[in-house]
Design a protein around this nucleic acid. Structure first.
Length: 333
DNA sequence: CTTTACGA
DNA sequence: TCGTAAAGG
């Protein structure tokens, strides 16, 4: 989900080449995992699974994407969500119901033989459980890629790391990191550059959003963007019906935020949410280090436990080690 | 999503 | 070589 500010920010996206993305990337782990789990599926919605039925879609995504990142000189650090704030409980429960419903609709569509409908519901039924979290961390560790646990929202921690200069940019498909204060957000960090949209195959490239350009272009402050987010809806509150990005921007510019909040959002703890976006729980208690991928360990895990093809795994790992030096991980040190 | 296979 | 379809687990 994420805060629906796409229409407001669409003029501030700039296509970026991979060369500009060299450096440390603070990646929203949950956002990435959800993407992999929902998209890496067969036409009828069945995810990749091993012989025991354990889902492996996320492992495939992590392996191939990160080997590509490494090759391009990108050093990713994955940031996992910690404990969500109290006021997120409603959203969490809402999403659980949506997932469970989708799972049932997936089954029903399959019985009808409606493949397209089945795939749609399958995607919506995706859930990041502890198995997904644990196996993703294990694979990242074997790949020599660091990950950290955020005290609360991963997106807040990512924004903090970019603000501190510990990372060059935030990676997420959602815009929430901008509310949390990241100076730079990069979306569409995808290698293949292709995506199905309305049945058509379109080209997608990494796009960069610079917070300062957004603020100066719209003549608003970061706090104003947070206020607009609250009016249109965030992970922590429902938006006001009838107020989208356009009206939200106008309302905040005209100083009507407080009035709308008191009139239309009587049950929302707006001061706490504002404060959470402005001063979220974050930590500086981490250290980042990248190491050479443990080829044997990765093969042992993916091929030995999760039925990956050893030929494919060796190939993607070998391409990295075989380089002439410039593209290898060791060239970072 | 990313890789791989395959026909133009 | 390129573009599209299918596979991967």
């Amino acid at each position: 989900m994420g805060v629906p500010l796409r229409d407001l920010l669409k003029d501030y996206r700039t296509v970026t080449g991979w060369e500009d993305l060299r450096g440390i990337a603070a990646v929203d782990a949950f956002n990435t995992l959800y993407q992999f789990l929902s998209i890496i599926r067969q036409p009828d919605g069945t995810p990749l699974v091993d012989g025991s039925g354990r889902v492996t879609s996320h492992l495939s995504g992590i392996l191939f994407r990160n080997m590509n990142f490494i090759q391009k000189g990108i050093r990713p650090v994955y940031v996992y969500d910690g404990r969500p704030p109290e006021f997120k409980e409603g959203t969490i429960e809402e999403r659980r119901v949506v997932r469970d419903t989708a799972r049932e609709q997936w089954r029903e569509a399959l019985e009808r033989g409606d493949i397209q409908e089945a795939a749609k519901h399958a995607r919506a039924s995706s859930r990041i459980d502890t198995g997904v979290i644990d196996t993703s961390k294990r694979l990242l560790r074997l790949m020599g890629i660091p990950y950290i646990e955020a005290p609360s929202e991963g997106e807040a921690q990512i924004a903090h790391m970019v603000m501190q200069g510990s990372a060059q940019y935030a990676v997420s498909q959602d815009y929430d990191t901008l509310l949390f204060g990241t100076p730079v957000l990069v979306r569409n960090m995808t290698i293949s550059g292709k995506r199905k949209l309305h049945g058509r195959l379109i080209t997608v490239s990494p796009e960069k959003i610079l917070a300062d350009r957004v603020f100066s272009g719209l003549s608003i402050s970061r706090m104003d963007l947070i206020r607009i987010g609250i009016l249109v809806g965030t992970d922590f509150n429902d938006g006001v019906p009838g107020i989208g990005p356009k009206l939200g921007l106008r309302a905040v510019r005209e100083g009507r935020f407080d009035a709308i909040v008191s009139e239309r959002m009587p049950d929302v703890d707006v001061p706490d949410i504002l404060d959470f976006f402005e001063h979220p729980p974050v930590t500086d208690d981490y250290s980042l280090g990248w190491e050479e991928p443990d080829t044997d360990g990765i093969i042992s895990m993916l091929c030995g436990e999760y039925a990956f093809s050893e030929e494919r795994v060796r190939k993607v790992l070998g391409a990295e080690v075989t380089g002439t030096g410039q593209k290898t991980l060791s060239s970072w040190f």
